[in-house]
Design a protein around this nucleic acid. Sequence first.
DNA 1: TTTTATTTTTAGATTTGCCTAAAATTTATT
DNA 2: AATAAATTTTAGGCAAATCTAAAAATAAAA
Lengths: 226, 226
Amino acid sequence: MKYSASKENHLKAIFHLQQEQGIVTTNALAAALQTRPASVTDMLKKLKEQKLLLYERYKGFRLSNEGRKAAVLVIRKHRLWEYFLVKKLQFGWDEVHVIAEELEHIGSRELIDRLDAFLGHPETDPHGDPIPDSQGRLPVKRQVSLSDLPLNKVAQVSGIGSQTPEMLEMLNYHHIRLGTRLEIRKRFPFDDSLEVKVRNRPPVTLSARVAKNVLVNDDEQGTERR
Amino acid sequence: MKYSASKENHLKAIFHLQQEQGIVTTNALAAALQTRPASVTDMLKKLKEQKLLLYERYKGFRLSNEGRKAAVLVIRKHRLWEYFLVKKLQFGWDEVHVIAEELEHIGSRELIDRLDAFLGHPETDPHGDPIPDSQGRLPVKRQVSLSDLPLNKVAQVSGIGSQTPEMLEMLNYHHIRLGTRLEIRKRFPFDDSLEVKVRNRPPVTLSARVAKNVLVNDDEQGTERR
DNA sequence: TTTTATTTTTAGATTTGCCTAAAATTTATT
DNA sequence: AATAAATTTTAGGCAAATCTAAAAATAAAA
């Protein structure tokens, strides 16, 4: 049950894409992994071989139970390491993704469970994403995109969708981070951009693209695990 | 200046072999890495190509300055991670080698320097081996092999030579670890084995092979860095 | 429903790191 | 010094993970 870094990356990316769309396509996965469709197809065959994937050619694919388990473990490792980097090594929350991307492929189970204990079993990583527990249970987050937040309603940032360094840097610049309380002052129907107000700061305008990637707490939030 | 895990392993192994013998041979390196001489030759060519190695075919080899620097960095990473695993995650000192073998290949400079700071700039790893500083300076240890310790002279264990899990497990069993004070009670010229006495314990017999790998403080120990 | 466009897969290369078997070179022994 | 033994390198192959270019299948448009 030890998979190559490349396989783990594919599993993880498929898992994330599945969250949004039920079924995943070759092109979407290639885009997510910054690789070529042909390379994806090659890997799909190997993952199917190992029964990590439900896949028939030309028909899209999804993870098997086994594959999902493996993907969630990688995500657990990634998020625990991110937490470690920010909370113990004082990295900024927008600097840790790349490093965690390497650390997530370290094998030892024992290591990750001890790290988890050392960190005090944190529930979310520095970006607000939930950390799967050692049984592979992933808490469901009740959150909505900032784009869908009603006007003049204060909400708290609870996560970031797609986390490119550029995006994180930009949010950082606008003092928008995990836990930040903000509200929408105005919507510009022309391009769906938003004027957003953060406490003690001048209002800033965010593009629809950015707003879609900022997640905020929904009214009733739950932490049941599924 | 980022090298593959396999290259880093070769560099590290060459560095260690160089400490003992000045020049390194293909067979010795193959043995150290549990690989085949032919594979070593392949890698030597690549390392030479990258100017990490001074090497002419059939004539042995040693690291270039560049190669030495890279090797020392890997060693620094390995030993800092070992320290982290033992001191922060409560692993036993005989369990950490394999995990550190993976962690040592994580790239980020920033990461390792922050880890170093987080750990309080430790001088030695849990086996007593010195940790190179961020400039790549490696403290010289003044130590001798247990085999060379005079009879009835108490000395303190300050390092372990070749650290196979089996060896570490055995030493652990005999309550011989870093810092343990011990003395040689008797030498058996037949096979050069030793009867060794540790405080509060019945005497144990160690083979010459084991004794050679246990390092103890020499009388005058220094910590100058070279 | 043909035709066109898009998506996906196959075919065939390439690179890295390793292997075995055989050849070349060096070292040791008679 | 000639032969035997050991060491080291070359030659040729294999598996993993990627790529490009071309073919096959599916989806969209005329």
